[in-house]
Design a protein around this nucleic acid. Structure first.
Length: 395
DNA sequence: TATCCACTGGAATATGTGGTCG
DNA sequence: CGACCACATATTCCAGTGGATA
């Protein structure tokens, strides 16, 4: 029934997110500064706090992993050095409290985990300091996607000051904050900005040439020789550079193209595979963001999709709200206030599922928005069909 | 060029859920 | 159990917005 299929790839894992290349290229300047900022750690001094920013997929996380690995290896030659790093992705952690809990749990054994609610904030910090103190030495805390914790940033000034405030004695803490939101830095409390952003490194997006170089190197390891048509890599690079300049995106695209060729049993990967792969990735991304919406988020989108079906988009909030009410009614959900639906429309716009057009009709009209689907109606329909709460409702 | 509409969007407040602890 | 705690999601309230028009 099963058999190995090795016509296209030699090792597809090379294209996956968790693959760590032996060398990190196209990021020389960034690595240079980063390395310099980590130097105090090797010297056994108080670590600097470092703040990395740049868009997603430009090598921030990879660079951090890469340097920390080297740092730990190189530290072994000095007996008086003990370096611990804790990596924490704040993606799903929306407050300082949750980050603190996560850090405590990282440091504790699995049977000793604490729950994510219930304790006073100070108590969680106290537990965290205890754990860090127990580890001792230099503790580097990496907070990835740190902008996700939003305005609730108390942990960002608690941690850097823990030692100064006498909570820590044995341990030296260094924070490495990673963010893809440039505005985040400006929104920080000035006290936090001073300490957290002591040293900053900016990662610029990759351009098409960088991406081509990266893809070419990976492709040599991942694919059999000569299975890629000559236009495949430049096209993947161009698509990704146009969009966000993300290496992650370019690699995903390359993998997906290869995978398509494999499934089609063709011997080579061609331009059409890349274009089709791009469509599929886009679709998958939308389906993914739909999964995370609340019931009323779904209903709101449903209402817009319904109007789109009848060719009545773009539509104003009022019209969408009326539509939403009748749908909610039909499905026996209590409708929300129009302000809340307005909030949902906003969120859908942020996710790139809806487009928002601005209007201003002046003296007697005022300003308002009109919304419409920003993606294929078909995609939305098939994604919504997967949502259990909408069972029985057809557009 | 001052006005004025109909909305936007921030903020304060409320509600319900899931948790700890004595 | 009851007092507390944090949080997601809604609700309510209202100051601000900005450009076509009088």
């Amino acid at each position: 029934m099963f058999e190995r299929d090795e016509t296209i790839f030699t090792d597809e894992d090379v294209l996956r997110e968790d693959y760590q290349p032996a060398k990190l290229e196209e990021r020389d300047e960034e690595l240079e500064s980063f390395k310099a900022y980590l130097q105090p750690v090797i010297n056994g001094k108080q670590p600097r706090n470092i703040f990395l920013y740049g868009k997603t997929g430009v090598g921030k996380t990879a660079a951090t992993r890469y340097l920390l690995d080297h740092l730990k290896t190189d530290a072994k030659q000095y007996e008086d050095l003990s370096i611990t790093s804790i990596y924490c992705n704040c993606e799903d952690l929306t407050s300082s409290y949750q980050v603190a809990v996560e850090l405590v749990n990282r440091l504790r054994s699995p049977e000793d985990r604490i729950s994510t609610t219930g304790y006073p904030l100070n108590e969680v910090y106290a537990k965290l300091y205890d754990e860090i103190e127990a580890v001792g030495g230099t503790v580097l805390i990496i907070l990835d996607e740190v902008d996700q914790i939003g305005t609730n940033d108390s942990i960002l000034y608690q941690l850097p000051r823990a030692r100064a405030n006498g909570y820590l004695d044995q341990a030296k803490i260094g924070i490495i904050g990673i963010s893809n939101d440039f505005k985040f830095r400006d929104s920080l409390d000035p006290r936090v900005e001073d300490t957290l952003c002591e040293r900053e490194i900016h990662f610029s997006p990759y351009d098409a040439t960088d991406l081509q170089a990266i893809l070419t190197r990976r492709a040599e390891l991942a694919f059999h020789p000569d299975v890629l048509n000559s236009e495949v890599i430049p096209l993947c690079a161009a698509f990704a550079a146009q969009d966000r300049g993300s290496a992650r995106q370019a690699l995903d695209l390359l993998f997906e193209s290869g995978d398509l060729a494999r499934r089609n049993n063709t011997e080579r990967v061609a331009e059409d595979d890349v274009r089709e792969a791009r469509r599929q990735l886009e679709k998958r991304q939308i389906e993914q963001s739909l999964v995370d919406l609340t019931t009323h988020g779904h209903l709101t989108l449903f209402a817009v999709a319904f109007r789109a079906k009848m060719d009545k988009t773009p539509a104003r909030k009022d019209a969408i709200y009326t539509q939403y009410q009748s749908i909610a009614d039909h499905l026996e959900h209590d409708p929300l206030s129009d302000r809340s639906v307005h909030a949902h429309l906003n969120e859908l716009t942020m996710l790139g599922i809806l487009d928002r057009l601005e209007f201003n009709e002046g003296r007697a009209g005022g300003i308002y928005y009109k919304y419409r689907l920003s993606v294929d109606l078909d995609t939305v329909q098939s994604a919504l069909a997967e949502v259990p709460t909408l069972e029985g409702a057809n557009i």
